[in-house]
Design a protein around this nucleic acid. Sequence first.
DNA 1: TATGAATGAGGCTTCATTCAT
DNA 2: TATGAATGAAGCCTCATTCAT
Lengths: 231, 231, 231, 231
Amino acid sequence: MAPSQNEKAPSQNEQKKSPPLRSDARRNRDLLVAAARELFAEQGLNVPLDEIAKRAGVGNATLYRRFPARGDLVEAVFHEDLTSVMASGEEARLARDAWGALTAYLEGVCALLARDRGVGDLMTTGIEGAPTLDAIHAHNHATVSELMRRAAEAGELRTDVVAEDLLFALSALGTSLPAVEATRPGSWRRPLALLLDGFRAEAQRPLPERPLTPAETDRVYREMGGEPPAV
Amino acid sequence: MAPSQNEKAPSQNEQKKSPPLRSDARRNRDLLVAAARELFAEQGLNVPLDEIAKRAGVGNATLYRRFPARGDLVEAVFHEDLTSVMASGEEARLARDAWGALTAYLEGVCALLARDRGVGDLMTTGIEGAPTLDAIHAHNHATVSELMRRAAEAGELRTDVVAEDLLFALSALGTSLPAVEATRPGSWRRPLALLLDGFRAEAQRPLPERPLTPAETDRVYREMGGEPPAV
Amino acid sequence: MAPSQNEKAPSQNEQKKSPPLRSDARRNRDLLVAAARELFAEQGLNVPLDEIAKRAGVGNATLYRRFPARGDLVEAVFHEDLTSVMASGEEARLARDAWGALTAYLEGVCALLARDRGVGDLMTTGIEGAPTLDAIHAHNHATVSELMRRAAEAGELRTDVVAEDLLFALSALGTSLPAVEATRPGSWRRPLALLLDGFRAEAQRPLPERPLTPAETDRVYREMGGEPPAV
Amino acid sequence: MAPSQNEKAPSQNEQKKSPPLRSDARRNRDLLVAAARELFAEQGLNVPLDEIAKRAGVGNATLYRRFPARGDLVEAVFHEDLTSVMASGEEARLARDAWGALTAYLEGVCALLARDRGVGDLMTTGIEGAPTLDAIHAHNHATVSELMRRAAEAGELRTDVVAEDLLFALSALGTSLPAVEATRPGSWRRPLALLLDGFRAEAQRPLPERPLTPAETDRVYREMGGEPPAV
DNA sequence: TATGAATGAGGCTTCATTCAT
DNA sequence: TATGAATGAAGCCTCATTCAT
């Protein structure tokens, strides 16, 4: 469940100072994370905590002790998935074909969004006190920015857009993808393709309004969910 | 609150057979609708009913008596706004320039979406027992279909898309617009323009996946909210 | 209690002093009584007053004004039925065969109990401020007493029982009769016959406990429903 | 509250798999059951749950957590009493004198009915999802059937009656007994004796109507309360 | 006077959070 | 330290009763 490198350095998840967990505590922790992963995927991040504890087969206080805030649980659950997103982002940045790499990267992200309601919530809701997720978000932003810059240089991407434009569109789309995936698997590729076509160079029409600044984008996400953004 | 044309035909709101309301009842009803309009706009359709009653300054039972189900209140609140959407749809259909009319129509819809969270909820959540809203939804669909057909004939719109594609993208976008509007008024025009550029003829790339059928679209919305769609 | 001249002088129903009702008021009053009659019979005396008003097609305040307490409505509804019980009681007292007359009389009462849940409630619940019903109750008691006395003299009825014994048994049975009637029409005759067999002379076994006094019986009914007895 | 033998085998109350409760939880559970026992006895099974929680001195959520449905609480409360009824039923079946044993058994049942309104409700209302009570009901029926059969063979009981006849009469009587008990303790023996005299052999008169079948009896109780019968 | 609406208390249930063992 | 229960606030709904036209 937790990736193997975590076993070597569990401190990353439990913050710096924690001593390694006792075996039964570790087991319960993992059960909780697994249960939360399922329920977040199925029902989104607002699933009742008691339900998570029940599916894990532990008391709710075990959950609360291990994860004082909902965000801690969220962070634990999505650390792995989103780390792999970071990895695919790194890989994408190495590609020659920036636009193709961007497309492929976003397809990976959307595949994740489509099968996990929690990820979509992460993009719009934001989670209080989830530094790891913040880092991933920053990395994601950097990846998209970088690839967009190069794709624009290559003449594939219109030049009047910024990363915020794309990420915002993606987050808006993201919440809807699990529903289309449940209806017809794979059909999320179509709205994504339409979205991307709007960013292509040939489609250019002068855009109204300047793009949102990063600070404004933050505020947007805060408006939406009540907390800082996450992915 | 009630536009003057409603004064001529108040029966439309109160269904056929109801006798005209007494003055104080009418007043309370209007207070409730006004309070609900504000709170739906601010917080979406799931705002607690007690809060609506409190803001209206009436008891919660008064609310319940007048609007037995939440959907009745929703219908009363959005009837007017959405009727005007229907009117603008009729107007759009008369225009020469189909693509321009479609754009203008969608701008009107998005302006509404941007300033009222309730409308976005309506597009994804659906409301049980709101026949008027269903009718509006059907009209909206017909308008978009008609204009898309003509815009495609005129060579402005890509030919491999259907109304469901556009309406789905719009509903996905809609939920996010109030947040951008609150951050920078009017800035919702930008993501809308990007969305529309994806539908233009020149941008064509072969799309993956066939579009969702209307029945599938219904199921998507049901997946999202639990009930039939509304707008 | 309600002699035929009441039809000429309905004022007796609305207390002494009321002027005769205006025609529409009279109509609404009758609608209310009719609706209450149906609903009391179907669901018992605790049916919501609003439901009665709704079935009558009038506002609930009309009901309240005309019948300030639930008991007033109850009295109006059951006046007629129970008056006919009184009449049949009078007739029974004239019969030669006291035991046969008693049996026939109780069959009439049970037939009423079986098809009207309200009557059973009346026997156990009691109604505050229903003088007419009290009078009927007294008459019923007198009838049963008289017939029992004569049946005992004739050697048909055991001599160690009093009217309270029989009336109590009857009231206990009464609540259950609508359910058996709904299950198999007419089957209420069987438990009644069993009950009566317990009162026959030949069945005599010395009974434990002295019978309840009338005062105690009153208290029993008060215990059961909270109010004075009625039938 | 719980008799000492329960301390040896507490599992019987908490179902098979439950781990033993922690001391405070056990205490609160017992407080709830005690409060419910009192209130059920005083006011019947429809007493508000909040009132039970209040008398127990715990929050209403504690009650809900421990007893998700009212029936769970009912089952907990009456398990003990009714188990002792089953025991006395077993004992009765062993007696020589069937009629005497039946009488004694029913006296025990009536003594219970007289001092606890809840038991009477159980006989007419029925409780959803109370398997233990259903078992007790079946046992009660079997006991009465068996004793009636033997009493008929011994010539003490009339031969044209079945268990349903007696149980129905008993349930009809049952609801009324708490009121007579409250009025004069012990006086419930008199109506019971009268009832039983109606079932004696010497009293025989041909009974009208065939008895209700068990299925019909079920339907009767469903008519009365809305759910399957219980005792 | 006749009418219909407003009221407000009370019931049940659910959940996030805090407390006791 | 690990665990699970208690808590209390809040949501929704229903009804008998009172108030305003």
